[in-house]
Amino acid sequence: MKTGILALQGSFQEHLESLKLIERDFILIRTVDDLEEVGSIILPGGESTSMIKIQENNDLFNHLKIKILTGIPTLGTCAGLILLAKNSILGKSTLNILDCDIERNGYGRQNQSFEGKVQFNNFNDNYCFIRAPKITSVGSGVKVIAKMEDEIVGVQSNNIVGLTFHPELNNEQNYLNWLDNFVMKGLNVGAL
């Protein structure tokens, strides 16, 4: 099975580089047919409003949601997290499958974008937060897996992980090891 990267718009090329570095097969998801041979999913950073609009054209998100609900490992970074969260944008619902509240552009506009030190799983590194969302509350059964000082910047609920920052812009070894275990081998899926 391949890892599918949502490729409507955004940093899908960077996620593709991550997968190349850990030598995994991938497919870019643009249509419903692309979901067929997918065994794990990455939702990239980008503009969530644009992605929602572009997928309407072929009803992709309804099929994507069904796929994620089968329990396959799913990672969303930044806009990807916004799409996963229980949320609505311009009055339209997102995938609505990760029980946390999100404030879009929680730190402000681009001038307030920054690099910050994040404790992620059992390692830390400086990651980019770009017009990043804030996780303002998490539901029961949702585990915090990344923090910047006291702030929650990453969560996991069973097979679904959402991060407010961009590990795909670093692609350092700690993250790649984590990615290999989570998205590829299905380790930690629902077990944490």
Partner: peptide
């Protein structure tokens, strides 16, 4: 510790616009 507006953050923002109009 936050460092705002590094070149990596500026360039990274442009990456997020890719594939878009």
């Amino acid at each position: 510790m936050k460092i705002e507006s590094t070149f990596k953050v500026k360039k990274g923002f442009a990456e997020m616009l890719k594939g878009g109009v």
